[in-house]
């Protein structure tokens, strides 16, 4: 009984007339209303679709194009990956061995990480553990500016400073794997530093306090408590730096010497996947075997990049569990 009376009393008052609490069923017409939720959603979902489509398109098209040399030109995949002879333009018996480039790419990447990681993590520790104030005031802008410097500028400086230096002090032409690794190492320094600094900052203060309370020195605390606690993110930082080093094209191309053979020493000129693509892609005609093989190199580049992404995921997932 009471309920009924409530319902009757609760007729909308004049000032709220026309407002209906029940939703309008004809939703799609509201696209034309500029305030409508629908319009917004079209934008939003459209953008999300563009992101997905670009990833799928890149992967798909590069794969299809990259497989041409194996499917259409009948180059043996194993020979391609393990062959050391790159003579695609030889009229008789051309040979498409990509191993020197794969080797070059991986060596430059690993060398660059070895060169950069200690300095990067050291700097990260400095700006978080030793002198946060200086870190914030000096090192933070330094990192931001270093990240911002375009890679061709790194390449240019490598060409005009590091290459002559190597020539006089190490010997040879100065164009070498080592020069490439040095240039890229400097390039990835800020990347690794800033992520490492975030990792170290994220370590809880209680852990440090506990360590100091046990009479540990600052270094012991860093070494035994802070670094182990931040380990997985530090690793992620290094791998991210390596991924960037691996994908760098022009800066490396300017200093590495672009030799087509497997190098005997790190002071020898060499080439990487990116540099050979950079150099040859423009000259090759679409549909030629050389062009197809370059796309295959691109596919290798893509696959290894995906490898880095998976590796990063693996590391951070393991970090979360432990």
């Amino acid at each position: 009984m009471e309920n009924k009376s409530v319902v009757i009393q609760m007729q909308p008052s004049p000032n709220n007339e026309g407002r209906s609490l029940i939703q309008n069923k004809k939703k799609w017409t509201s696209i034309f209303n500029r305030n409508s939720e629908w319009r917004g959603k079209i934008w939003i979902y459209g953008s999300a679709i563009v992101v997905i489509l670009s990833v799928i398109a890149i992967t798909l098209f590069l794969t299809v194009q990259g497989l041409r040399s194996f499917v259409v030109d009948h180059i043996n995949v194993i020979d391609f990956i393990t062959g050391t002879e790159w003579y695609p333009d030889r009229a008789e018996n051309p040979s498409y061995g990509a191993l020197p480039f794969i080797f070059g790419s991986l060596t430059v990447t690993i060398l660059a990480a070895i060169l950069a990681a200690p300095f990067a993590i050291g700097s990260a520790l400095f700006m978080t553990e030793l002198a946060p104030k200086w870190g914030q005031k000096v090192l933070q802008p330094v990192i931001e500016i270093l990240v911002g410097i375009p890679s061709v500028v790194y390449g240019f400086i490598g060409l005009s400073v590091i290459v002559p230096f190597m020539r006089t002090h190490v010997g040879g032409s100065g164009f070498s794997l080592l020069s490439g690794a040095l240039v890229v190492g400097v390039m990835i320094l800020p990347t690794i530093t800033s992520i490492s600094a975030d990792a170290v900052r994220a370590v809880s203060h209680d852990l440090r306090q506990a360590s100091y309370a046990l009479g540990a020195t600052k270094w012991q605390t860093i070494y035994r408590v802070v670094i182990p606690a931040a380990k997985s993110t530090l690793l992620t930082a290094i791998v991210l730096g390596m991924a960037r080093a691996f994908g760098e094209a022009l800066a490396v191309q300017m200093v590495i010497g672009n030799a087509r053979n497997l190098p005997n020493a790190i002071s020898d000129p060499s080439a990487t996947l990116t540099t050979i693509i950079t150099l040859s892609m423009g000259h090759s005609t679409t549909g030629s075997v050389l062009n197809d093989v370059l796309w295959s190199l691109g596919l290798v580049l893509l696959i290894i990049s995906y490898g880095f992404i998976l590796l990063i995921r693996f590391i951070s997932r393991r970090g979360q569990i432990s």
């Binding site: 990833v55 890149i58 992404i309």
Partner: peptide, 19 residues
């Protein structure tokens, strides 16, 4: 997808553009 796009080498993006 965002992560993949962010970590693709720029030359790969260039090759995609070419294609």
């Amino acid at each position: 997808c965002v992560e993949v796009l962010a970590s693709l080498p720029s030359i790969v993006v260039g090759m995609f553009g070419l294609l």
